[in-house]
């Protein structure tokens, strides 16, 4: 890799010109190995541990127990049991994404005007990172300790206010019980991804609005909110995708439940024959990927629109 690539023009004028000219006067004295080969180890790794597993996960949905092609498993995506799993997953993700996005945006709003390197922001940054990325199993414990049958809040409400939150049965271990823990990691994630958009609002816009006689309310309604709308919707989609793909909290809360798709995949993986079909996990994975692909493509579109205002 000692020769300068001859066909690539120097990117920054004078600094590269010396090497460039020597290379063009003495064309390829020594054939260097193409730098593209340097990417090979990483490419191999990604192929083995990202591309291959994804391909297997999507492909097995089309295979039966003997490895022959079948549409049986994919057809099972229409089974009421699976449909209810996807419905529950999508509703749960949408509800927690909306609540998380609104609360998270409020926190971001409250942080306007604080110093980015100040202690308040440092604490909130770190706490958000922990709760958004580390959550999982720990969140299940936290909510069992809070609103479990002997949880702090459950007991206080019962003993002090006479309210039994489980009067109609214990819902913490069913899908509704996932709403609060999910919000608990959605809000911090919103803070992490939405704060940069808010910080990209230019002071000149507020000044211009003020000079022209606009009130703060006008500024928010006519300038900031329209500019922020794509970022907000994009963050909403990212939150949806995050909740939709999350597994650990639900798995730690219930060891048997099959209310949401990730838990159905667990059941399919551990019991081999869910709904009397082998390889159903592959079909469920395929379904999840389709939902994720829709969400993430919309996100990419919105992101492109949002980027216009962040230069």
């Amino acid at each position: 890799m000692t020769t300068v690539e001859p066909r690539r023009p120097a990117r920054r004028g004078s600094t590269g010109s010396r090497g460039e000219s020597s290379a063009s006067t003495a064309p390829t004295r020594r054939r260097a190995i193409s730098p593209a080969w340097g990417v090979a180890p990483f490419a191999l790794y990604v192929a083995l541990f990202l591309a291959l597993p994804t391909a297997i996960a999507l492909g097995t949905g089309f295979l039966d127990g003997d490895g022959a092609f079948t549409l049986d498993n994919v057809a099972a995506l229409g089974d009421p049991f699976v449909v209810s799993g996807f419905t529950t997953s999508i509703v749960l993700s949408a509800v927690t994404a909306i609540i998380g996005a609104v609360l998270g945006a409020l926190v971001c709003y409250a942080l306007i005007g604080t110093r980015p390197e100040g202690p308040l922001r440092s604490m909130i940054d770190a706490a958000s990172g922990v709760l958004a990325q580390f959550g999982g199993v720990m969140l299940a414990f936290a909510f069992v300790a809070t609103i479990g049958i002997q949880g702090l809040i459950t007991v206080q409400l019962r003993d002090v206010f006479g309210i039994d939150i489980f009067a109609d049965g214990v819902w913490l271990y069913e899908a509704p019980g996932l709403v609060l823990p999910y919000i608990y990691f959605q809000v911090p994630l919103m803070v992490i991804i939405f704060l940069p958009a808010l910080e990209a609002l230019k002071p000149q816009w507020a000044e211009a609005a003020a000079t022209l006689g606009g009130t703060t309310a006008t500024y928010w309604r006519r300038i900031a909110l329209p500019v922020l709308a794509p970022s907000f919707l994009g963050s909403l989609l990212l939150l949806f995708a995050n909740a939709f793909s999350s597994y650990a909290t639900a798995a730690a809360l219930t060891s048997q439940g099959q209310s949401i798709v990730p838990l159905q995949i667990r059941a399919a993986l551990t019991s081999e024959t869910l709904l009397g079909r082998e390889n159903l996990a592959g079909a469920l994975a395929l379904g999840m990927i389709v939902v994720m692909a829709v969400a993430m493509s919309l996100y990419a579109l919105l992101q492109r629109r949002a980027a216009r205002w962040q230069r």
């Binding site: 083995l48 990202l50 996960a57 939709f244």
Partner: peptide
Amino acid sequence: FVCLLPISIPAIVLVVGLAPV
């Protein structure tokens, strides 16, 4: 694109394909 791809692939999906690997 490759490096950001794992965001779009839930771990639970990856595990289905990682099991045979």
